[in-house]
């Protein structure tokens, strides 16, 4: 297969020393194995995720994403924009759709962009990395790259919210998407069937502002993974990953549970299954170590 190229929007949390820097490392390894070239949008900015709305009105927020898209059109012409972060993907795609439907907003956005010497034409598709994997490769092709099947590991596919709603992955339902389960199977591991909390909210950004309420939600997500016999949880979203991994001690202290379950990205699993090292798969980024993956990677 020829090299596939995409215009890449990595997002704030992927940066060096940021909360999902490990996600980016594993994505880069995964893409090397799949012969995917990610052309980072030069000088990209924050999309304001879904939490900047207090200070940011509609137009300033749309303008943020429009700047990234305008830069992408200028520097990576004709390429689909791909994001790995769920919130980045959502905010960017929402912007393209809303400006596509509203000529006045589009004109106002371009008036603002002109101050930075940019113009947004709305020419390209905005996609999540998971869409690239499923639509541009497909499970069969993804399976061909597996060198070390993840045998004997049972994994709960925690899809979460923003890669699932409101856009979701083509052909999947909002209430019971199966793509993570299929991906887990493709990599030789065993998916948790009927993982009840697979699309439940972890609190998102409110894990910071409403910690108790969010941790109550996270507790159920983890409990339901354990109920399904899971050894680990996999997710496509940086906020889901962090929320479900880092608060386990707090939840244990409050509820008397004994949670200690690794939470990885799909790209972590793929990188290991594709034969890459623990370092290339960013296993060192796990606060709760994924020992079963380490064993396979070090084999």
């Amino acid at each position: 297969m020829a090299t596939k190229e995409y215009s890449f929007y990595p997002g704030c949390s992927s940066q060096e020393g940021a909360s999902s820097s490990n996600y980016l490392v594993s994505v880069e390894s995964m893409c090397e194995e799949l012969d995917v070239k990610l052309n980072t949008i030069p000088d990209w900015n924050c999309c304001s995720a879904s939490i900047g709305y207090c200070g940011g009105g509609e137009l300033p927020r749309l303008t943020l994403s429009a700047r990234n898209l305008a830069l992408s059109e200028e520097h990576n012409p004709g390429q689909d924009v791909v994001a790995t972060c769920a919130a980045c993907w959502l905010a960017t795609r929402e912007t393209a759709e809303r400006l596509g439907e509203d000529d006045d907003l589009m004109a106002e956005t371009n008036q603002a962009l002109a101050e930075a010497g940019l113009t947004f034409k709305n020419e390209n598709k905005i996609r999540h990395m998971v869409e690239v994997l499923i639509d541009d490769f497909g499970y069969e092709e993804l399976g061909k790259h597996v060198k070390k099947p993840l045998e004997g590991i049972k994994i709960a596919g925690y899809v979460g919210c923003q890669t699932n709603r409101p856009f979701g992955i083509e052909g999947e339902s909002f209430e019971n998407p199966k793509y993570l389960d299929k991906l887990v199977e493709t990599l030789g591991a065993e998916p948790v069937e009927n993982y009840e909390k697979k699309v439940s909210c972890c609190g998102g950004a409110l894990a910071f502002s409403e910690p108790e309420k969010s941790q109550a939600l996270i507790k159920e997500i983890i409990e339901s993974a354990y109920d399904g016999g899971a050894d680990m949880i996999v997710t496509p979203c940086p906020v889901c990953q962090m929320n479900v991994e880092v608060y386990q001690d707090k939840i244990n202290a409050k509820y008397g549970t004994k949670f200690h379950i690794p939470v990885t990205y799909y790209s972590t699993l793929m990188s290991v299954a594709y034969g890459r090292s623990a370092k290339d798969s960013a296993l060192g980024g796990q606060i709760i170590r994924a020992k079963q993956l380490e064993d396979i990677a070090n084999k």
């Binding site: 704030c12 900015n45 924050c46 995720a49 939490i51 207090c54 950004a205 409110l206 502002s209």
Partner: peptide, 14 residues
């Protein structure tokens, strides 16, 4: 709290 956090987030990114 989310009023505050949301404003902090915006100020931070800007």
């Amino acid at each position: 709290p989310t009023f505050k956090f949301s404003q902090h987030f915006w100020n931070n990114l800007v």
